Simulated scan of single mutants.
Amino acid sequence: MSQGNITLTGQHARLTPLLQDHLSDLQAAANDGRLWELFFTSVPSPENLATWFKTANEQRDKGLAQPFTVFDRIQNKVIGATRYCNIDSTNKRLEIGYTWYAQSYQRSAINTECKLLLLTHAFETLDCNAVEFRTDWFNQRSQKAIERLGAKRDGVLRSHMILPDGRVRDTVVYSILKHEWAGVKANLEFKLKRTPSAVSS
């Protein structure tokens, strides 16, 4: 399940390997909505951006993650980040996580297309048996978004993580299995045709 330097390109979005050169643009994207103030997300604050970047690259170097910068392909503008993480090559599983977008791009075609690109690569190129999604118990918006993809809820990991602020997080776990992929793909392609492309600017 070798990842390599992957670039995934769709009609609206382009996912490229995360680079140091992207950090100032990522900070600007996070400023759109001051996303780090949402306590249940993984969006880096301006003062934590360098640490966030270092951790992402350390995980990549260990073969456990593949971090991406998300671009609005039409405007060639950095609008967020996402990641393959918890990569388990032996059991052909991985998680899609650490995903966030500038507030003005949320609920647009960008998220739908990014998930379609990532899932297509995971199931059809990496030959995954399962792709997982995890989110904070309090992040109801994220749970609804994952369910709209067609993922099924596996359960809740109680007292799963101690967060930097000391809060002990319950984690909600979802997954899509290989035999479910054809239906999920058709669902995402249908949604993509009916979703507004992005912000008008």
Rank of each mutant, 00 (worst) to 15 (best):
D32A: 04
D32H: 04
G33K: 03
R34K: 13
R34I: 12
L35G: 01
L35C: 01
L35D: 00
W36Q: 02
E37A: 09
L38F: 09
F39E: 10
F40M: 06
F40I: 05
T41Y: 04
T41G: 00
S42N: 14
P44N: 06
P44M: 08
E47P: 01
L49N: 00
A50W: 01
A50M: 09
T51L: 13
F53I: 03
F53W: 05
K54Q: 15
K54R: 15
T55R: 13
T55S: 11
A56W: 06
A56E: 05
A56G: 05
N57E: 11
E58V: 11
E58I: 12
E58Y: 10
R60I: 08
R60K: 15
K62N: 14
G63A: 07
G63L: 02
A65T: 07
A65M: 07
A65F: 08
A65K: 05
A65I: 09
Q66L: 14
Q66W: 09
Q66T: 12
Q66K: 13
P67C: 08
P67L: 08
D72L: 07
D72N: 11
I74K: 14
Q75C: 10
I79T: 05
G80E: 06
G80Y: 02
G80F: 06
T82D: 02
Y84C: 05
C85Q: 12
I87V: 15
S89W: 02
T90S: 12
T90D: 12
N91R: 13
N91W: 08
K92H: 14
K92V: 12
L94Y: 06
I96T: 08
G97I: 03
G97M: 03
G97F: 09
Y98T: 09
Y101D: 01
Q103K: 15
Y105R: 09
R107Q: 13
S108D: 01
S108G: 03
A109M: 09
A109Y: 01
T112Y: 04
C114E: 10
K115L: 04
L116M: 07
L117M: 07
L117N: 00
L118M: 15
L119F: 06
H121K: 00
L126R: 07
V131A: 03
R134A: 08
R134F: 03
R134E: 02
T135D: 01
W137V: 10
W137S: 11
F138Y: 10
F138G: 14
